[in-house]
Amino acid sequence: MASAEEGLTVDGKLSEIFSEGYDLYKSIETSPKPFNSEEFQEDVKKCIHLFEDSTRLVSIIGMFSTNEQAEEIATDNLKYLLLPFFLGQLTSKIQKRDRLECLKVAEVYYRDFIKRCEDYEIVKRESEIAELNSTPRDEKAELVQMAIKRNTKIEKYRQKKELEEQLKMLKIAIERDNVDDEIKRDFYMKLIQSSIIETKDELDSIKMELQILEMRKSSGAEELENSDSFNGGPPSHSHDSSHNHRHHHHYRPEPLKPIIITRNEMQKAVYGMGYPSLPVMTVSEFYDQRVAEGIFPDPEKAAHMKPVTGEKTEEEVEQERAEQDELEEADDETYLARRRAFDEYKDNVRRGDGNRYNRS
């Protein structure tokens, strides 16, 4: 596993990879290119890979803990809480893939983002909100509930607009040199709060779209089944068998799945049972994979590498002394002249120099 020195290397890589991904994400959000264009989709794909690697590196460093509160997170680390939100946004923009598959993966990312924010008490838990909104099932109570929901939507819209205006001003401030830590922290917290509101809207939209797609999928399967039974079974493959063979074995891309990283084998077993369709790997497995790809340093090779420090090793000191002794014995003129000059050097200090505190 990675040592402390390698951890610094990984931390540096995380900052670089996230910055590259965030710059690309901002350009995607403001891009005039059509969603289904090749260039736009390539940018989305690249940005997803960058944020996936950032997520893995956050797990390696062990940056977040459920025992902490938002106030305990370092200001520069707050932005990494947004990783699942960014991945959810990007996944929903993917074209030329099964829409149902993309929506389910985006939903996993959005729910993971909300869960992290709940753990850090940035937002109230869904169970607490549901308990506050629960009312008896009668006509009067339902009217009251409808009014509460309407007012909540209006308040949410107002908050979103206020946050957008505040973020515009803070964004200008944090782009300056030597920005104050409090301003930077305020920007990240407001960005997280704005993303929470957007995430809840996205989850509502995904829920509605999933219902429509599931209905369309089931109705399409029923139509195909009815068509087969009407024709007396599945269509014959006797005509143009080569064409049917090529059609049957057409290329299918790998399933789109969210990245879930766990810290050890026990968590891997638990998450694997809870999310059987998700690819789960431990931090050690991910690090070994990156070492094999040549991205991270090999721990064994790094252990034998000479440390880059300002201090000399014992072997170097001994070798230097031996060289000096040889030069003295050989009466090397250059070496002896340098030594004599060093012995004759005097540090002249004039009268009155030194600590003149409280003196005229």
Rank of each mutant, 00 (worst) to 15 (best):
R356N: 12
E101L: 04
G7Q: 07
E5Y: 14
P32G: 06
N67M: 10
R321D: 06
N244Q: 13
P84I: 08
Q267K: 04
K153I: 13
D298I: 06
K156I: 13
Y22R: 11
S134M: 12
N226M: 07
E155H: 15
S277D: 06
K217M: 06
R137K: 07
E139D: 15
Y22N: 08
L210H: 01
V108R: 15
S3N: 09
E182F: 09
G274E: 02
D343H: 05
E20K: 12
M189G: 08
S65H: 10
E42D: 06
N244E: 15
R321Q: 09
G88A: 01
Y80F: 09
Q267P: 01
E225M: 04
P276W: 10
D23R: 02
E72Y: 15
I73L: 10
S219H: 04
H248S: 13
K217L: 12
K45E: 01
D347M: 05
G220S: 09
A141T: 03
A221G: 10
G232F: 03
E39T: 07
D331G: 07
L87E: 00
D343L: 11
T334M: 12
Q289P: 05
L57I: 14
P84L: 03
L100C: 04
G220R: 11
S134C: 12
D119V: 14
I17G: 11
P297D: 01
G220M: 10
D204W: 02
K96P: 06
G352T: 01
P234V: 15
E209V: 00
I259F: 03
Y335P: 03
N67T: 14
S3L: 11
E328F: 15
H304L: 08
I295A: 13
H243E: 08
L191D: 04
S54Y: 04
Q159S: 10
A141E: 05
L327G: 01
T199A: 05
I48A: 02
L170R: 09
Q166T: 13
L103G: 00
G354K: 00
T199V: 05
R185T: 00
G232K: 03
N348I: 13
E254S: 08
G352R: 00
V105G: 01
R350N: 09
G310S: 02
D138T: 10
M208R: 10
V280M: 05
F286I: 13
I61T: 12
S218G: 11
T55E: 11
S134G: 05
E39G: 04
S127Y: 08
Y188D: 06
E311T: 00
I129Y: 10
D138F: 14
T30E: 01
N226K: 08
Y275H: 05
M281I: 15
A130P: 07
E155M: 09
L57M: 11
Q41K: 02
S194G: 02
E38G: 07
Y188V: 04
R351C: 04
I17H: 07
I197S: 07
G274F: 03
S37Q: 12
A2E: 14
E38H: 04
Y120K: 14
S92C: 00
G62V: 03
E320H: 01
F113Y: 09
E71M: 10
Y335G: 03
Q166N: 05
E39L: 12
N231W: 05
I261S: 12
E52W: 03
K312G: 00
L132D: 08
I94S: 00
